[in-house]
Amino acid sequence: MVKVVKPPRNDKLPLTRPVIGVAGKTGLWRNMKPLVNNVKCTRCYQCEIYCPVNAINVEPETGAMINYDYCKGCGLCMDVCPSGAITMIPETGE
């Protein structure tokens, strides 16, 4: 058996715990911004499956929704979209 007992003076240990935005708001890295045309979107989930930042959520009702706080603007979603529903536009910081 093992018992976890904290050190008496609460020593700083090299332990980490899950947190959203560990590298900050990575949306700030973006110089191109993806825009979704949800009329064209066929809900095929390709963008959601491939998005490396886990920043796209596809719902049957709404289509693809992008979390711009963390989207790094790589454009991968545009490349994998089979219906041309995603376009990249220059980031204006808006």
Binding site: V19, I20, G21, V22, A23, T26, N57
Partner: peptide, 23 residues
Amino acid sequence: KLPLPHDARDKLLPGDAACPGCP
């Protein structure tokens, strides 16, 4: 071609330090 189970989103958290487009 179905979405991966949705709890995948809760496990890998947005805002990591990978380069854009990282595999």
